[in-house]
Amino acid sequence: MPSPLPLIDATRSGAKTVALPAPGSLPARTVAANGLIDRLRGSVSERPAVDPGLAGGLRAWLEDGTSTAPDRGRLIVEPGPRSGLTVLVVPAAGMPGQAARQAPCRRGAPPRSGADLRAILLRTVLRLTLTAGPPRAPFEDALAALAVSEWGGLVVEDVGRLSRHRGSELREVVRHGATGIAHGWAPPPAAWLPRTGDRVIVPLAGGRVVLQSDSDLVLGAPSAGRASVCMMRALPGDGTLEGGKVRRFLMLLETLRSGAAPFRVASYDLDRGRLVVDDVTEATLSAAVQEVLALLRRRLDASEGAR
């Protein structure tokens, strides 16, 4: 059993709760950034049995809702660089999944903002911390790690284009954030099967719509009948409506991929060093489907309006 930590009620701490379909019923909790992995895992006895038909039902709902998606390109739904969910439109040609992977870091895209760069660098520091312990020089180490990743070189280029003053500011902000990360996180025991950067891609409507995300930490073996997986993604600023959408999106994607719902999904607030935890229920998964379909509908309506 993890050591008991003071749970901070989301409403008392000022964190906003989420909407859809029953805003008050979603079990978001905020915990102090200490022993965060224990908080994420919770107790084994709390893990519910898996309904093996649920994933199929959710997929059918999504397929139904996306069946009229146009064939002009691929619609990619993913967590945005800072918060919430975004929809990107990319050309449909090429390898399955390739366009989806390239979308967030495509060459020729406008340079990322300072806030985007900060979020990317801090997520990299978090992954390094969870893999090999806190980096000694967080800013430089994050850049070194990004330089060898598939698209991270473009981020390194963006950082290199900053003025000396803004570069120093960014270094200081990353150093400060890394201190908070080192305080709350450490490499989990290998027996928990930890993985960072775990990517999920769910194609719908014959690949015309792609839902995708990546998690900063996933723990647990695949389900054998009882929910066994928990996951966490870092977000700059959380406890908000948009953070809740991202958490529900993550749980939906993992359910569709593995056929079994995870038991818990959390987001780590990079600004305040807090973990916001949602237990996974049918209600939260249904909310996630509604949110994805509503987002796509808005995007398609906007496209039609522009035409």
Binding site: T124, R127, A145
Partner: peptide, 12 residues
């Protein structure tokens, strides 16, 4: 740190 990045991706 670059090796740790490879380690993370390979572990997943």
């Amino acid at each position: 740190p670059a090796r740790a990045a490879v380690q993370a991706e390979s572990t997943a």
